[in-house]
Structure formats: structure tokens, C-alpha cells
Design a protein around this nucleic acid. Structure first.
Lengths: 216, 216
DNA sequence: CGAACGAGTCAACGGGGTGTCGAGTTACGG
DNA sequence: CCGTAACTCGACACCCCGTTGACTCGTTCG
């Protein structure tokens, strides 16, 4: 389904069949979106803003993307790919002990999204209005849940973790916590954990939830 | 600040100074909003829909509320008041053991929002677009966090819970989990925990996070 | 009783956003 | 040098928002 690897390799999101010199334009639109998102929320950015930012008129924008959401979706594809890559690297890395594995995974998760603050906040906003954004996130979320559930089951089978609720349910709850906590710390509204304390706190909750006893 | 007790006691949200026979209209608008939210998302409901549903024209709507968000805010005030009341009742109730206390609090929290599914989902959507909704939620969230943090500190002081991250940070993380998990189970998109399993799973995570060892 | 006042009502307007259509304008391969 | 496909935009139709100004009541009070 998703193969968003190279810059504009995610064909199908835009409208144009294939190659042309106007790839520049496409990139300019994406860059403009990223730039504008740094200064105002998604809802305050119009298609016209994106078009003018890229030096084209509004109708021309529609030649490259079907809507404002499509632009965001393309941007998100990149971050998702990055997050998946980082996560895979972590899961494959040498497990110097199971507990440290969780720590590294959470830190990677946190770092990926912190590195794209504006985009993360925009994505959350768009989730309310775009079914496609919802679907993309559901897909990503599901992948993480499955990975975590598998890991939890492995720890239980190995005797390292006690029995408890279905591993999948636990994974959903904990991943949900990650999502909300990190979003809050990035968005700035409402009570949030200080950026530097996010990972330690999350690690603590994950470890106790999975293994029972608090870490040494 | 907030005193939303009776039906339209939350004065200040609407525009009209005070009483008049047109209180009917105001209630009709609120009822229409609640009804329409059962069938479509907030974003798909226009001011005109609300006005027509209440038997008035669009301009007249503005005589009663300053915006669509104001209607939602009034609706939310009720639920918040209900949630606070339920929560207070739980915290004051006879503590048949600390662990059962948490269980009851989480069940109450869950029940309150499940009882207003459409509204809960709409509120989450509005949070992206309305600063007032964000502020209201931040206020409510903060209240819960403080209660929980206090309870955690009490358990630690009593020697029943081990040391760990700052109680406030722990409370934020766990309350965030509640919010996201319950929202997911109500909204229907993305992976979610089955409605009946939500409370048990949350209880488990809370207990291990606070006390370390899993429950008997 | 009949002015006067305030609650309640809405047609009409101005402004901003969206998405589309059709008529251009390049630019390059034959 | 010509056709075809990439690319561009003026103009249109539509939807929604929030406001204005005038109009209709009912009540109250001189």
C-alpha cells in the first residue's frame, strides 16, 4: 500500500500521471506547506496560501494535489517512513537486555515526532477532518501495536513478564499513552510533561505495565 | 470560573443578557445540536442546520449563541459538571481498599464519557479548531491530574507505593492514556480496546504504574 | 388607549473559502 | 514547424460565516 520512499515516489497522491519538469512545483508546494505550518495551524492555511507560496495560482495548485489534505498526507508519508525505519533499526539492534530495548524504542518514537513538531500537530488536527489521514494513522498505529504485542507475548512466554490482560490490549493502551503524551508535550496546550522528562516517564509506565515490578 | 450547574445556568456563553421566553429556542438549538451530532460529525453541521433544526433562521441563531462552538461549549459544560460530580462522589466514597478506589474512579470516568459518545467525539474534533474548547478541556484535565497526583503522593507517603517519577508526571501520563483509549473506543476509527475491556486494562496499567506489583 | 421600548426575527449583504471548467500558453519530439 | 501533452490561470458556481438594518410583536406605563 504505502511505499513512500524517495522524494515524490509516493505516486497516486498527486494528480499528475507522471514525470515532468513541474516536479519542482510539487516540491515547492510541499516546502511551502512545511514552512507555513511552522507559523500557523493547518486550519489557518488556505489552498491559496500554498499556491502563492509556490508561485502559482490557486487553480494550478489543483493540478498537483487534489486538496490541502493530500499535501499533508504526502508530508506525513515521509515522517511515517522515517519512523518505521528508526523503529525497525531499534527492534533489530542488539538487545543489551530487554528493558533497555523498550527504552530505546520509546526514545526513538519520541525523537522522530519531536523532530517534526509542526507536522505532528497538523496531523492531529487533520485527523478530525480527513478520513484519509485517519486511515493512514490507523495503519501506522496498528503496525506499532502489533510489534509491541508480539514483544510482550515473547516476554511472557520467556517467563520474564507475568500474565495479564491480552497483550494486544495492553499494547493499545500503552501506545495510546505515547501518542497523547507526546502530542501534548509538542502542542503546548494543556498540562504536559516537560520534553526532557517524557521518555523516562513513559519508560517507567511501560516497564511496570509489562513486567510488574518497577525497574532497579 | 465555571458554574455550569442547571440547564442554562451557564450564563455568559450565550449572547442575550438574561431571561426571556426564548429560552425555549435556546434549548431547541442545544437539542438539535445533540441530535445532529448523533448522525454526523461536527464539521458536517452548519450554523444553518442548527438554526433550521430549531425552527429559526440563521441570523436568529446568532441572537442566542455567538457561534457553533459556543453551542458545543454549553453542551460540554453539562458533561463536565456531571463528570466532576461523579468523580467527587467516587473520591469521597468509602475506600474499601486503595486499589478498589482507583478501579471505581476509572469506571466512573469511562462511564461518564461512554454515556455521551457523540458529544465526546465532537469535543475532540472541536479541540482542533476552538481555543475555548481547548481551554475548557485543559482546565478539566488539570483538575483530574491534580487529584490523581495528590492520591499518588499519599500512597507513597503511606509507604504503599514505591518512589518513582514525579507524581504529577505520572498522573499526566496515565490520564492521557485514559483520554486517548476511551476516545478511540468511542470514535470507532483505528485500533481500539473493546468497550467492556477498557476499564480492566486501564486499571491494570494504573495499578502497576503506581504500586509496581501487579494486582493479586 | 396608545406611544415607547425591548425581545425576537429575518432578508440581504460582504467577505472568504473551495473545487471545476475551458481557454489559453509553453516546450519538446517527430 | 507542427502537434500533442504538460502546464497555467481567469472566471464561475457554490457553500459557509457573521453582521446590519428594518420589521413585528407583546408588554408596560403615562
Amino acid at each position: 500500500m504505502s511505499d513512500g520512499a524517495g522524494p515524490s515516489a509516493a505516486a497516486g497522491r498527486g494528480r499528475r500521471p507522471a514525470r515532468a519538469r513541474g516536479d519542482d512545483r510539487e516540491l515547492q508546494i510541499l516546502a511551502t506547506a512545511e514552512r507555513l505550518l511552522e507559523e500557523r495551524p493547518l486550519g489557518a492555511i488556505s489552498v491559496d496560501d500554498l499556491a502563492r507560496g509556490a508561485g502559482i495560482s490557486r487553480p494550478t495548485f489543483y493540478f498537483y494535489f487534489t486538496s490541502k489534505d493530500a499535501v499533508l498526507l504526502t508530508l506525513l508519508d515521509r515522517v511515517v517512513a522515517e519512523a518505521d525505519a528508526t523503529m525497525s533499526a531499534v527492534f533489530d539492534g542488539s538487545p543489551t537486555g530487554p528493558r533497555e530495548g523498550w527504552q530505546r524504542a520509546l526514545a526513538a518514537y519520541h525523537e522522530t515526532f519531536s523532530g517534526h513538531r509542526a507536522l505532528t500537530v497538523a496531523w492531529a488536527e487533520a485527523r478530525s477532518t480527513s478520513a484519509e489521514v485517519r486511515a493512514l494513522w490507523a495503519e501506522v498505529f496498528e503496525r506499532w501495536v502489533q510489534r509491541c504485542a508480539t514483544a510482550i507475548e515473547a516476554e511472557r512466554a520467556r517467563g520474564a513478564a507475568p500474565a495479564g490482560p491480552p497483550a494486544r490490549d495492553l499494547a493499545i493502551a500503552l501506545t495510546s499513552m505515547n501518542e497523547r503524551v507526546i502530542y501534548a508535550s509538542l502542542s503546548g496546550d494543556g498540562p504536559a510533561i516537560a520534553a526532557d522528562d517524557v521518555v523516562p516517564v513513559l519508560v517507567r509506565v511501560w516497564l511496570t505495565a509489562v513486567y510488574g515490578t518497577p525497574p532497579d
